[in-house]
Amino acid sequence: MSIANVTSTSDRAPEKVPDARWLGLLKGLWRHRLGRAGCIVLAVLVLVAAGADWLAPHDPTEIYYDYILVAPDSRFWFGTDELGRDIFSRVLFGARVSLQVVAAAVALSLVIGAAVGLISGYAGAWIDNGLMRVMDGLMAFPALVLALAIVAVLGPDLLNAMIAIAVVNTPGFARLVRGETLVVRELDYVQAARAMGASPLRIVARHVWPSVSGNVLVYGSLKASAALITESALSFLGLGVQPPTPSWGYMLATGMQYTQAWWMSIFPGLAIFLTVLGLNLIGDAARDVIDPRTQR
């Protein structure tokens, strides 16, 4: 009873209390200067995507025959494209498509990749070998080439683009999670859990995954920007979103054919740039917050 001394580190650094780590991560991101910028950028994008119906001054697919390739002015803020559609409205609606694809693709690859990585890392032996060789096989192709091949097989549309992006990103998650799992499963407290008779499933769910998930989240936010670029590239090649639905990549692609109409490619390009920047800022900040050693 005499040694009831508590070292109370918790009230000094609440963002490090692992138990409330999701909330702690958000708080930490907000406290991080660049992280906050990333959060704001992403929040604005999400609002824009959600509110595109109200924010857009024009219907993104409506064609104004008298206003083809008009430079930005007070009526068409970002100008019009080769068919006379309002680029500002199309950029707003494009956010919806792009964010949807990115969120769904990253979530899918995270879930599958994490499952593969946990099973592989914890089970070891031939299961590990089998799963990892499949992942290596996927990784052997350049991401875009593989995504192109998958879309080519499945047929070009938005859903298939999502699937392709998810497949391309899965091996990265699987490898990361496997590597972390290999480390965590040897830790003393996992051994202690085994000694108290916990089943492998329970150990993975209660002891391994919580230790791994932070890094996976960071990786996910970095991968999101790569996924956005892949989505843009697929749409650019006409294999993602099908016209007339607006997509940043597709707009960029058509803009390239009209070099004198700089506004056609600048604005969707800027949107891609901002989104990738925001996601990368969040990813970097999340890494700093989770790993105190890299803190500024």
Partner: peptide
């Protein structure tokens, strides 16, 4: 394990799940 066999580990610092 846990019911008939119990084990106390050497390192109290690392044998508890920090989270």
């Amino acid at each position: 394990c846990g019911r008939r066999l119990g084990m106390i580990f050497q390192e109290p610092m690392t044998s508890l799940n920090p989270m």
